[in-house]
Amino acid sequence: MAQLTYRESVSLAIAQAMRRDPKVFFIGEDVGAAGGVFKATVGLLDEFGKERVMDAPISEQAILGAAMGAAMTGLRPIAEIMFSDFLAVCWDIIANQIAKTRYMSDGQINIPLVIRTANGGGSKFGAQHSQSLENWSMMIPGLKVVAPSCSSDVLGLMDASVKDPDPVIFYEHKSLYASKEQLENTNLSIPLGQANILHEGADITIIGLALMAQRSKKAAQILKEKHNINAKVIDLRTLVPLDLQTIKRSIIETGLVITVEENPRLCGWGAEISSLITEHCFSNLKGPVTRVTTPHVPLPSADILEDNTIPSVDLIINEVIKKVKGE
């Protein structure tokens, strides 16, 4: 098997789900004939036809409503919301309807659907096409939150998400679409709620997600080579369900922890992780949890402004050095 890009793994993951299960269909804007604005769904229309790959109007509420209703009958839709920023225009369907219907109906209704969306910055698209919004869905009971950081995780987590009986918001990172990974096998399944160790180390724990997990891994490699600091990097992969046990085990070992988040500061997912660490690992901590986030601003567009807003590899390295040195 050749190298597979993150982008190619998205279409392959969807295709594999659709080949396996006739109940799976795919709906979104510009996803079929155009193959998606990020070319992440190329080939699906040709293979599965219009009945299973549906080009929808620019109607995010109607897209997710249709996906929800179909899921209520037992179908397993995958719906695309082109940019995660657009989740705001269909947030009622997600937060009020999809998330709560199982609970309000006393379990009469299951909603097995996946909402895929392109998330995160790095493309200089400005504040309405670049946000990192995992925390929006993390705070709503009833939603599972997935954010893969590499091609194999796209494959494995998509497989688990489509098979999951509950609604999943699947955040694909725009800046990772071109990243490549050598894969021997593409039939992967990774259980939701199982974090991944991207770099081993016992000096400090770095917790990241999606692009920030990859930048943390890069930072850990440099820290080891140039600064003799051994950092353990945990890629959470999913925020809900959350693999708290992996976090706890690492903190018992290192006693120091940094979260690296792409979102603005307030109420980012790291705040919840930090709170859990305080609650569960207080006696193991050698110092306070440090949260590396973007400052609490909307994301600016110009190269130099965006690059200096989103946490960089250099920023992570500097924060780790300060932490380990006790500064």
Binding site: G65, A66, A71, M72, T73, D92, Q97
Partner: peptide
């Protein structure tokens, strides 16, 4: 939020408009 799936009552919706889009989904199914 009265719901009775056995009888085909796929829910009562308290946010105006949402259920029109959701009803499309059962029709699509």
């Amino acid at each position: 939020h009265l719901t009775d799936v056995e009888k085909g009552v796929m829910g009562s919706y308290a946010i105006i408009g949402a259920h029109l889009t959701i009803a499309n989904g059962t029709a699509l199914a």
